[in-house]
Write a protein that binds this DNA or RNA. Structure first.
Lengths: 344, 344
DNA sequence: TTGTACGCGTTATCAA
DNA sequence: TTGATAACGCGTACAA
């Protein structure tokens, strides 16, 4: 733990510039009352001494810390690393800083969130992780607004922004059913995660009533390798019968499925099996996959999240909880036959 | 700018627990001298009041802030978002926090770094961005250790960790030449970036002497679409002659090339054109590409970066600058024909 | 082990 | 517009 070298302080600058210490503070505060001449002199002295105001000290005194903590889970899923990127860029654009945390899948996230709350942050964004009721209480006590990103909290009523996972998946379900899917395999993600649950339910709601539809579910562990391995396990047995459609609840799993089907079983998509995912990650949109999927409008979701963060903590929970559900965008892609098949 | 709600302080906890304020501080400091009984009583009071120590205040007083700033450029390149992830996880593992910044390609990075230095951070990691000599001076004045990640700084002597870009690319050059490459197209990245420059030079050093070799260079803008578009522009003209090998200085561009060649020109890799990249990103390793490339050992590079950060700032610049050059690992892949061709 | 007194570097307050 | 002074919330001496 490096002890910080004692910094040049505003007092040092004040002495060199021949002014009082608060004057230095004003020189660095946009819109403060100070003559331009004096400010220039102070800034010159500051530059000479390599002085910049210490955010910690100023935050302590001003009771504002332009810091937002972002807790990301499952950064191996490109959707979440793309999302983190958008958060960083958006938050930075508003002259605030990002304190970044990651929670390994299945690891205790309470510990990490506790760390985050020791900072006097303006807000806390939680993606893809649960939050215990104890922590909800703590965040409240600390007056820190919390918004869940893409995660419906079971039990406690917290504010959050999410894509319309149910309806988006239902659209994919209808699309696949219309394209002739009857024997359908659903690749689940985290069985506890609301995202996976909602998508499975949404999809089923669209195909359950269709005549002749049989559905099977397997676990894909929310990851490329998880889905890939699930395919191999499932179809390597004696006399495997392939479904005619696969719905993976996220794109990275869909990609894992596609690779396994192609490489291990020589199947062509969509000729032999149709495939759909969810998220709209860049990788899935590229030529080798051209995945049929529903894109989560990340930019907008992030913007709404940051918007919610402005509210008082009391207005973000319980009965006041704000739930923003943003519709996703269907990306037709090439992995589900489209109207072309109907035209035949 | 949300004004932070005034927090519960150690004084409040002290009063409730019937002890002095420093006792509260000790209760939260591992290894401090305090009886277990008293500590328990204090922690109970703290929990009741939703108290957690304020990092800013404690840092101000203790002169240590377990915060490391990471400035990332070009997060659209999966290599850098994978790297950021490794930084976050590694730093978090040592009970420190990450202050994350991003610098858009070509944007002024000085401004962002200046923001970072207003924090009393333990260190600053800069990936894929330049640092002006003014900022170097400032970081020195502030006593903040700076380490460049994967970037050789032209002009100023700063410490840094990088992959052996020259030698790694030379290995790829030799591999391609041995596989029969003669008409070679090099897809450059950022023309100013040391990474791209070193890789181009390393590659050329290996093939320049080979009889019959012709080399052409084009700009791929360090991105998927940049490289993809470069292919289309280059080969769409009348009577395009395709090279027999393409070396893209990073994987994401190699993937862009592969997609364009396949989709727009119907070329098969490696049968019609062989292809190599650099970085070893996950996406490039997957079945549709199986890219021949050199993997940057990110985990090790990050570890060495954090190691360097422990040094005093004076020992990280000028004559004392530490340069750690880590060898990359050749991943044979399937996009350059291997010894199989020799065996024929 | 415990408490008192002080300092960390800044902004806020208020009188000049 | 300015400067003196008091917070901000916590660690750290030091004395008890």
């Amino acid at each position: 733990m490096a002890r910080l070298k004692s910094r040049v302080t505003s007092f040092d600058v004040a002495k060199l510039a021949g002014v009082s210490q608060p004057a230095v503070s004003r020189a660095f505060t946009p819109g403060a009352s100070i003559t331009k001449e004096k400010r220039d002199r102070i800034l010159a002295a500051a530059k000479e001494l390599n002085y910049v105001p210490n955010v910690f000290a100023s935050s302590l005194s001003s009771k504002r810390s332009n810091m937002v903590a972002v807790i990301s889970g499952n950064l191996n899923n490109p959707f979440y690393s793309e999302t983190l990127q958008v958060f960083v860029e958006s938050i930075q654009r508003t002259h605030r800083q990002v304190l970044a945390f990651s929670v390994q899948d299945g690891r205790d996230s309470d510990d990490v969130m506790m760390q985050a709350m020791r900072y006097p942050i303006d807000g806390l964004v939680v993606t893809s992780a649960q939050m215990s009721s104890e922590l909800v209480k703590l965040s409240e006590g600390l007056g820190i607004p919390v918004v869940m990103f893409n995660r419906r909290v079971v039990g406690s009523e917290l504010s959050g922004v999410q894509c319309d996972n149910f309806e988006g998946s239902a659209v994919l379900g209808r699309l696949m059913a219309a394209a002739g899917a009857r024997r359908i395999l659903i690749v689940r993600g985290d069985p506890q995660g609301s995202t996976s649950i909602d998508r499975v339910q949404g999809f089923r709601s669209a195909v359950d009533g269709v005549a002749g539809v049989e559905i099977e579910e397997v676990d894909g562990e929310s990851s490329y390798s998880g889905a890939r391995n699930a395919m191999i396990r499932r179809f390597n047995g004696p006399g495997p019968r392939f479904p005619d459609a696969i719905f993976a609840v996220n794109d990275i799993m869909a990609i894992g499925c596609a690779d396994a089907l192609n490489e291990n079983f020589g199947l062509k998509i969509p000729d032999d099996i149709m495939l759909a995912g969810f998220d709209g990650i860049r990788e899935g949109q590229r030529a080798p996959y051209s995945l049929t999927t529903v894109r989560q409008p990340v930019e907008r979701m992030v913007a709404e999240t940051l918007e919610l963060l402005k509210a008082a903590p009391e207005d973000l929970k319980g009965a006041e909880a704000q739930r923003r559900v943003i519709p996703g965008d269907l990306i037709p892609g090439h992995t589900v036959p489209g109207m072309g098949r109907w035209a035949r």
